[in-house]
Nucleic acid binder design. Structure first.
Length: 359
DNA sequence: TCTGGGGTCCTAGGACCC
DNA sequence: TCTGGGGTCCTAGGACCC
């Protein structure tokens, strides 16, 4: 008798925030568009670039000033400039809720991992062919009712589904049957493996490891000696092993808030006011989650050279008042405003506060 | 016109305890 | 009559993800 294979899908909305804006404003259709920070004021990054903007080399997390430069270069060459929008996150989350609610009417078990992504357990369909039809129906529904596209990957576990959803973006539907997993992974760059970021990629490239099939030549022990415990996890991933278990949403382990100042500063009054505003925000969220107390407070400071330091304290007993949060975070902040934890008295560009250890 | 904000997980050293 | 050895908690930093 054949072993029971799980069938997992990963659904990922294409350029979600930008696609919603494009949909809702007809004159934006087909134009390069970026949702993110205001390129004319302040500091920040690209949140989402639509596909025309990506053709200018604009990517998520790119400094908005750099995106602006790319837009200007394109404009000087007679191409349409980028439309920059600050984003309406309430709207995006309503669109997301509507899509996820529909999916739940079709599929008993789903795990939403962000505003625009979810895993779907399609094992109940009994075959990859039926699962594919169901996913196509969901894509059709999203296209018809929301005028948005999603990319879907289907595989025997969450890892393969996730990689597959990224394989043919946008508007893709990629099915990787269990017997095709190795062939699917082998030619991919190692960067396509979730968890391999810029640093790990660099380490692996130095060793001549560029593609998955380069790394699968190595025994697990070699990856472990290169990457430590993460090497063991990576070994499993490049061999296609992953979990097929979907998880219910769990309460957060920490709640934080941070802000980058418009200008770097060492003004104690300004920074303390900003810190207290972050404390109030954190305290609102802490209460909204229904937690009774927190026991650890962490303050983060980022200096004008972009180095980041944090200082935390676990209280002798759980606390649950805004006053206590402000008092603790102020004590943790002060060393960043003088020589104790800021040797050259570098101006601060960011301050943040986070609470952990809930009850 | 340098580099957001909200998170999770892992590591490593020191304190502390039995 | 040189420095045991786990286990757990705490702190700081870093990689990564959306």
């Amino acid at each position: 008798m054949k072993k029971n294979t799980s069938i997992i899908a990963h659904l990922d909305m294409d350029a979600f925030f930008a696609a919603v804006e494009e949909r809702d404003t007809p004159r934006f259709a087909g134009q390069p568009l970026v949702v993110g920070a205001d390129p004319h004021r302040g500091r920040g990054v690209v949140s989402t670039a639509n596909y025309p903007a990506r053709r200018y080399g604009i990517r998520s997390a790119m400094p908005i000033s750099q995106a602006w430069r790319r837009s200007e270069n394109a404009r000087l060459q007679g191409q349409p400039p980028v439309i920059f929008l600050s984003g309406n996150y309430k709207k995006y989350s309503l669109v997301s809720e509507s899509i996820m609610a529909y999916i739940q009417t079709r599929i008993p078990l789903i795990e939403q991992t962000s505003v625009d992504e979810a895993y779907l357990d399609l094992t109940f369909t009994g075959s990859f062919a039926t699962a594919q039809i169901l996913c196509q129906e969901i894509k059709n529904y999203i296209a018809r009712t929301q005028r948005l596209t999603a990319s879907v990957g289907i595989g025997p576990n969450k890892l393969i589904a996730k990689i597959a959803s990224d394989f043919q973006k946008p508007n893709g539907l990629t099915v990787v049957r269990p017997e095709k997993v190795i062939d699917f992974l082998n030619p991919l760059p190692l960067r396509a493996i979730p968890g391999v970021g810029p640093k790990t990629e660099q380490v692996l490239l130095q060793l001549g490891l560029k593609k998955v099939c380069d790394a699968t030549q190595l025994p697990q022990s070699a990856l472990e000696s290169i990457l430590g415990k993460w090497g063991e996890a990576l070994f499993k991933k490049i061999h296609g092993q992953g979990s097929a278990t979907l998880h219910a949403p769990a309460p957060p382990l920490s709640v934080g808030s941070q802000t980058t100042f418009p200008l770097d500063t060492l003004s104690a009054m300004y920074v303390v006011n900003q810190l207290f505003a972050r404390c109030e925000q954190v305290f609102r969220h802490f209460n909204r989650h229904g937690f009774h107390s927190f026991r650890t407070v962490v303050v983060t400071a980022r200096f004008n050279d972009f180095t980041t330091a944090s200082s935390g304290r676990t209280l002798p007993r759980p606390a649950n008042t805004l006053a206590k949060l402000k008092k603790s975070s102020l004590q943790l902040l002060l060393p960043f405003l003088d020589n104790r934890r800021n040797p050259q008295l570098r101006p601060l560009r960011l301050i943040g506060v986070r609470v952990e250890n809930f009850n």
